[in-house]
């Protein structure tokens, strides 16, 4: 590739962690930044919406958008970036799947305002501002990027882990980008790359939460009763959390085989929770274990509710 690829990085409904995550690659960031031309990146350079609007359509090669689509302004910016860019990359779990913020859709917009700002709150002009200025209104739903514009690639994660950021830029610089749509993470489950020992005939007789036990450093976390989303989640992070003793929470999104991560993990748990034998005499004990699962929805859909909700 002769000319440097032009990239844009933008945040919508985001915590800012995705913008910082580029530093995860360490010194490689120096090389990455020297091989691209940053034309728009509000967190890094002084550019305004009007600068973006002045760019010719298709003039940006890759626009990496992180964050959920939460406000009208988010949607407008996504639409402008779509027009100005050859490829749109959903960067991070929020843009990819809705992320944690999409769990807010369990409640309506009005309920969210009430819970956060109290009774009687009305969105209006920010204090001390005259004239027509107003804050962008909250959308009814917090949706993944693909619900508002066509998305070509995803670099998943909360935030994307270093190996996947590298995978994306390596492909970009080699000039051998896969055909869209493509997710820069493994098709196989995280368990495939997890170094912890697991047994084929595993079953679990208890469910515990991370603060309740000090897990054995070598054994599968699920076998120890921690709800690890590894079996239904894409690999690619080198099992970052399980290696550190924390169960996977599913930020890279479900494997294509798992599909709906909640349904898949619910099935997996229903298979795993059993005692030395099965039958009517075990029903009460099985239920006692299953009842210990706190917040199934938040556990199964921590990052993917936006994409996989069937209702709210």
């Amino acid at each position: 590739m002769s000319a440097k690829p032009k990239i844009a990085v933008y945040w919508t409904g985001s915590c800012g962690g995705c913008d910082v995550s580029f530093l995860e690659v360490g010194e490689a960031i120096v090389e990455i930044l020297s091989r691209v031309e940053v034309v728009f990146w509000p967190a890094l350079v002084d550019v305004k919406r009007s600068d973006l609007e002045a760019m010719p359509p298709g003039s940006i090669d890759y626009a990496l958008i992180n964050g959920v689509i939460r406000t009208e302004e988010n949607r407008e910016m996504a639409e402008i970036l779509r027009e100005k860019s050859k490829y749109i990359v959903a960067y991070g779990a929020c843009a990819h799947l809705g992320g944690v913020p999409s769990l807010a859709d369990l409640w309506g917009k009005e309920e969210i305002f009430r819970a956060v700002f109290g009774e009687g709150f009305r969105p209006g002009p920010p204090p001390g501002v005259d004239g027509e200025a107003r804050l962008p209104d909250l959308s009814e739903k917090a949706v993944p990027l693909e619900e508002v514009v066509r998305v070509d690639y995803a670099v998943p994660g909360c935030p994307p882990p270093a190996p996947l950021i590298s995978r994306f830029f390596t492909a970009l610089f080699s000039g051998e980008m896969p055909d869209p749509p493509y997710v820069f993470a493994n098709v196989k489950a995280l368990c495939e790359e997890c170094p912890r020992e697991r047994h084929d005939d595993r079953r679990i007789e208890r469910i515990v939460r991370p603060h309740e036990i000090v897990p054995d450093p070598n054994k599968c976390l699920l076998e120890q009763g921690l709800i690890c989303m590894g079996p239904v989640t894409r690999g690619g992070c080198n099992a970052l959390c399980p290696v550190a003793g924390m169960p996977c929470t599913g930020c890279l999104g479900p494997t294509p085989e798992a599909g709906d991560p909640g349904a898949a993990m619910l099935s997996a748990l229903a298979s795993l929770v059993r005692f030395e034998d099965e039958g009517e005499e075990y029903f009460a004990r099985e239920d006692e274990v299953l009842e210990r699962l706190a917040d199934p929805l938040g556990t199964f859909y921590m990052y993917a509710f936006g994409k996989f909700r069937r209702r709210s």
Binding site: L106, G262, L266, S267, L269, A270, S271, V273, R274, E286, D287, L290, E291, L293, D295, P296, L297, G298, F300, R310, R311, S312
Partner: peptide, 13 residues
């Protein structure tokens, strides 16, 4: 067992 879990999940929805 799936139904036990679903009955926990459904009220959240």
């Amino acid at each position: 067992r799936r139904v036990t879990l679903l009955r926990k999940l459904l009220p959240q929805l």
